[in-house]
């Protein structure tokens, strides 16, 4: 899978390059049209001014997370909450949601892409933790989701957290659940794969009994395979003894205070004017039960 991933990165870089050329072309047009579009100007030297001068926003996203960032196999276009949020920021900064370049990232290379300024920001189901916060900065969160476990529809043995003991539980490498599961169910046998897709495959083949991660991710996966799985709300506790949740946030290079403040103010704006709700309802809202209010800004 990793090798496929790598080739996917190259492929998407190639696509991104072609895309960038196209966008550059249209960005020239957008600049002319942009004179009339109401775009706030930022002081020179800030990341926002740089993005505006370049004419496009470069965002690191995942392409294999349904409802967050997923390449639609039919249209080839990226879809999901992360993608919509990225487009919203591009529109806010450059006047058009099309002035954007997506770069595929995975859980292992998000920090490096930010540190080397290969991307302006990362919106890729990216919750902060103390070690990540040493390497990059975060703004947000734009979404908070509790942790759950997905099992096969006919499974009757996993109903609560303690039922995870003695079961084979799949988690993805580097996810919060990799830490939380042993903490809450010390006898659970962890099977660690690098992608969610592999965990799903292992669950469908009954190689594992359950897949544990944030509920929003699980519901996204379930929407891809309707009728095969069900969600058990195993509420795990974190190291502090509180209910664990993943706070999906926007990653940005370390020390870019102006960009951080801009992103937080942008999130506050879309939380207030209903745009966030529109993004949520058209993606995660289609599978998440109940009404959800925007999260508080924590970072």
């Amino acid at each position: 899978m990793k090798f496929m991933k790598r080739s996917k990165i190259f492929a998407s870089l190639a696509v991104a390059a072609v895309f960038a050329l196209g966008v550059n072309g249209s960005a020239v047009g957008a600049e002319h049209a942009g004179d009339s579009a109401a775009v706030k100007a930022y002081p020179p030297g800030t990341a926002m001014a740089k993005i505006q001068k370049r004419g496009k926003l470069i965002v690191g996203v995942k392409v294999d997370f349904p409802l967050f960032g997923l390449r639609n196999p039919v249209t080839g276009k990226l879809e999901g909450m992360d993608i919509q949020l990225a487009k919203g920021i591009a529109k806010d900064l450059t006047g058009s949601a099309d002035n954007i370049q997506f770069v595929e990232v995975n859980s292992g290379n998000r920090e490096v892409f930010l540190q080397q300024h290969k991307v302006d920001i990362v919106i890729a189901t990216y919750p902060p933790n103390p070690k990540r916060e040493k390497a990059v900065d975060f703004a947000g969160p734009y979404l908070m989701s509790p942790i759950g476990t997905m099992v096969n529809k006919d499974n009757t043995t996993i109903k609560k957290v303690s039922d995870l003991n003695g079961k084979n539980i799949c988690v993805t490498k580097g996810s919060g659940s990799e830490t939380y599961v042993p903490l809450n169910a010390p006898k659970a046998k962890l099977v660690v794969f690098s992608t969610m897709t592999q965990c799903m495959e292992a669950l469908a083949q009954r190689r594992v009994d359950g897949v544990t991660t944030t509920q929003s991710i699980l519901l996204g996966q379930m929407s891809q395979n309707p009728g095969k799985f069900k969600l058990v709300p195993t509420e795990l506790l974190n190291t502090a003894g509180k209910k664990a949740s993943d706070n999906d946030s926007i990653g940005l290079p370390k020390g870019e205070k102006a960009l951080h403040d801009y992103l937080d103010s942008y999130l506050k704006k879309i939380f207030a004017n209903g745009e966030w709700k529109k993004m949520y309802d058209s993606t995660l809202g289609t599978v998440m039960p109940g009404d959800v209010a925007p999260p508080p800004i924590l970072y």
């Binding site: 292992g108 990540r132 490498k173």
Partner: peptide, 23 residues
Amino acid sequence: AAVVGVAELTFTADKIAIEEVQA
């Protein structure tokens, strides 16, 4: 073997690298 989740050297290193953010 790391591709299929066997915790050998490459897999372990990759896992620690993600955890510690020090590839």
